[in-house]
Write a protein that binds this DNA or RNA. Structure first.
Lengths: 331, 331
DNA sequence: TATAAAGGATAAAGCGCTTAACCTTATGAG
DNA sequence: CTCATAAGGTTAAGCGCTTTATCCTTTATA
C-alpha cells in the first residue's frame, strides 16, 4: 500500500507520535527533529490518510451539497462557486441532485452521514423538514442557501425573494404594463417572489392575472414547463402584455412560446426572468431579469458553513442578500 | 456519538464479530441470531461508519469526477447522468472543476487520493498525463470519459469525435455550403472534430477556411469566445456561408454575433454545433448539432468504473460511442 | 460408543492515525 | 549540590470496523 505514518517514523527514526505532532503542529518538538521529519515526509511523498484521522475525530474536509438539479444553470453556477470557495479552504464537496423529491433528500442525507461529511449545505426544497431537524438534533452542521428559513433554527444565506418579486413588478409597471402573466412553480422561493410581485401590483391598484396558478408538474424540464405555461396565457383573449417568469429557464420557455405565436419581444410581450444565470446572455434577445448575487451567495454560504463547523459562528445567523434588476432586451 | 457496532452487539447479546458478519452477509450465522441482530440494528437505527470499514480495506463508495467546468451544459448534463447512475449503485461522487488547468487537475487528484476515493472518472483535459500515469502505477482505478485515449492504457468511453466532425461537414456540404468557418478550441476533442471535418471537406475537393485557427485564450466564457471567433469570420470579405462550432456554447456565441451583424440564420449563415446539450433547445432558433449520447455515456462510464473497481473488467476496454446529426433550425 | 466433521459464535489483531500520560535529560533556582 | 521545572520525546490506548484463528457444541459416521 501507500506510505503510512509508520514508514515516516521509521525513516526519521522517531515515534509515530512525533510525526503526528509535526503534521498537526501540536505539542513540543525541537526545530531539528521537525526539520528531519518534514524532510522525510517530503522524500517519501507521504500523505496522511484522511480516513484514519477522521476516525479519530478530525474533520473529513468534505461537505455535502444537496441541490435540486445541476442541469439548472442557477444551481450549476451556485455549485461552481461553492466548490471553488470550498476548495480554497481545502474542502471537497459531494453534490447530490434531489429533483425536489423528499425521498432522495432523505436518502442522500443518510448516505452522507455514514460518510461523516463535516456538514451539509442544503439548497433543495425540504418541504418536509424532519430530516433536517434530525441533523440539527444530532448537532451535525447544516446551513441553508437560496431558500427561506424554516421554523426551526438553521444558519443560512438567502436572497430576499419578496423584494425581488417587487422589483420585477415595479420594473414592468413603470413601463406601463397593467396586465401581467406570472409563471411560477410551487416552491418556497417562487411563492415569495409571487407574493412580492402581487403585493406591488396591489399597491398600484392592479390585480394579478386571473388565470394565474402555481405549476405543480415536475416531470418536465423547466423550459418546457415555461413554454406550456406561456401558451396558456397567450391563447386567452385577455392576453397579457408582459410575463414575469420566476426563473430564467421558465423565461426562456416563455420566449419560445411567444415566438411560436408570432409575437415580438419586447414590443408585443415583455418578459422578465429571475436569477441572472449565464443563460440570460445565451438566449436571444438577452433576458431582462432579477439578479441574484450567485457568486457572493456561494462564497458566503461556505464561509458560514465552515464557521458553524469550527464553532466560530454561534447563535443563529441569517444572511439576506438583495436582488437587483438587470435590464436587457426583453422589456 | 452515534450508535456503533458495539452498541448493537451488546443489545443483541452477541459479539461484534457476529454483527459484522450479518452486515456483510459473510460467514455462517444461524437464522435465529441473524434475525435478532437485524432487529436490533433496526431498532437502534444503526448505520455502519464508512470511515471505519474503509480503513479496514473496504470501499469508500465514493468516486472522484474531474471535469473542466460544471457551468458548461455538456459537463453539467454528463455529471448529472454520472451522479444518477452512481447513486443507483450506492456510490457518491465528488465533482471537481479544473478549468483545464493542470495545476488544479494535479491538486484534486492528490486531495481525492488522501480521501481514498475508490476511483477516478476523468473528463478534464489532462494534456499532461503524468498524474494519470501515477494513478495507474499505484493501481488506483481510473477511467476516462468524453476524451480520446492517451498513449498508455486506460479504460474509458468516448465519442468518435472524428466521425462527428465528418457528419457536420457532410451535412453542410450536402446543403451546398462550400465556404465554411470553423470555431474550435485547442483541445483534443476539438482537434479531432476539426480533423474529421477537414478530411471530409478534402474528400469533396474543398478546403478549410483560410482564416481558421484554434482558439487558445481560456479566460473567457465559451459563449464570448464563440462570439468573438464568429466576428472574426464575419468581418472578412470572404465571409463564409456556414459555421461549424465545436460545441453548442460556441455555436450560441456565433449565433449572437451573426444576429448583431444583421444576418439571418439559416438563410445568410448556417450554423452547426456539437454536443446536443439542452442549450440547443433553449436558444432561438433551435440549434442543429452533432449529438453525443450524453446519458448513455454517463451510464457506461460508471458501469465501467465499477467494473474496474471490483475487478470484473480486465484488460483494456475502450467503448466508442457514435454521434448522430440532430437537424434543427440553424441549417 | 468413539470420533470426525460441521455449525455457530468469539477473541484478538490490526487498519493509520491522535492524544493523554508518562519518561528522560538538561536547566536553573535556592 | 539538591530539587523542581521545562523541554523533547515515547508509550500505549483507542476510534469503529473486518477478519482470521480458535473454541465450543452438535450432529453424522464408522
Amino acid at each position: 500500500m501507500s506510505v503510512t505514518i509508520y514508514d515516516v517514523a521509521k525513516a526519521a527514526d522517531v515515534s509515530i507520535a512525533t510525526v503526528s505532532k509535526v503534521i498537526n503542529k501540536k505539542g513540543r518538538i525541537s526545530d531539528l527533529t521537525r526539520e528531519r521529519v518534514l524532510k522525510v515526509m517530503e522524500e517519501l511523498d507521504y500523505r496522511p490518510s484522511v480516513l484514519a484521522s477522521a476516525l479519530m475525530g478530525k474533520n473529513t474536509n468534505t461537505l455535502g451539497l444537496l441541490i435540486p438539479d445541476i442541469i439548472n444553470p442557477f444551481f450549476a453556477e451556485l455549485s461552481r462557486h461553492i466548490e471553488d470557495r470550498a476548495n480554497e479552504l481545502e474542502y471537497n464537496v459531494i453534490i447530490c441532485n434531489t429533483d425536489y423529491q423528499q425521498e432522495k433528500e432523505k436518502n442522500y442525507i443518510q448516505l452522507l452521514k455514514q460518510k461523516s461529511v463535516d456538514g451539509f449545505i442544503l439548497a433543495s426544497g425540504f418541504e418536509d423538514p424532519t430530516e433536517v431537524e434530525r441533523l440539527i438534533e444530532e448537532e451535525i452542521p447544516v446551513v441553508i442557501v437560496a431558500r427561506e428559513f424554516p421554523l426551526f433554527s438553521v444558519n443560512g444565506v438567502a436572497l430576499n425573494d419578496y423584494i425581488g418579486g417587487q422589483m420585477a413588478a415595479k420594473h414592468l409597471v413603470d413601463r406601463g404594463h397593467q396586465n401581467i402573466g406570472i409563471i411560477a412553480r410551487d416552491l418556497w422561493s417562487n411563492r415569495e417572489r409571487v407574493r412580492g410581485f402581487c403585493d406591488y401590483l396591489q399597491s398600484q391598484g392592479l390585480e394579478k392575472h386571473p388565470e394565474f396558478e402555481f405549476i405543480r408538474d415536475d416531470n418536465l424540464t423547466h423550459i418546457i414547463t415555461g413554454k406550456k405555461a406561456a401558451e396558456h396565457y397567450l391563447t386567452k383573449n385577455s392576453r397579457p402584455s408582459a410575463i414575469f417568469a420566476c426563473n430564467d429557464l421558465l423565461a426562456a420557455g416563455a420566449i419560445q412560446a411567444t415566438r411560436l405565436h408570432g409575437l415580438r419581444i419586447p414590443e408585443d410581450i415583455a418578459i422578465v426572468g429571475f436569477d441572472d444565470t449565464t443563460l440570460t446572455r445565451m438566449i436571444d434577445p438577452p433576458l431582462t431579469t432579477v439578479a441574484q448575487p450567485i457568486e457572493q451567495m456561494g462564497n458566503e454560504i461556505v464561509d458560514l458553513m465552515l464557521g458553524v463547523i469550527d464553532g466560530s459562528v454561534k447563535g443563529e445567523k441569517h444572511i439576506t442578500l438583495m436582488p437587483s434588476m438587470k435590464v436587457r432586451e426583453t422589456t
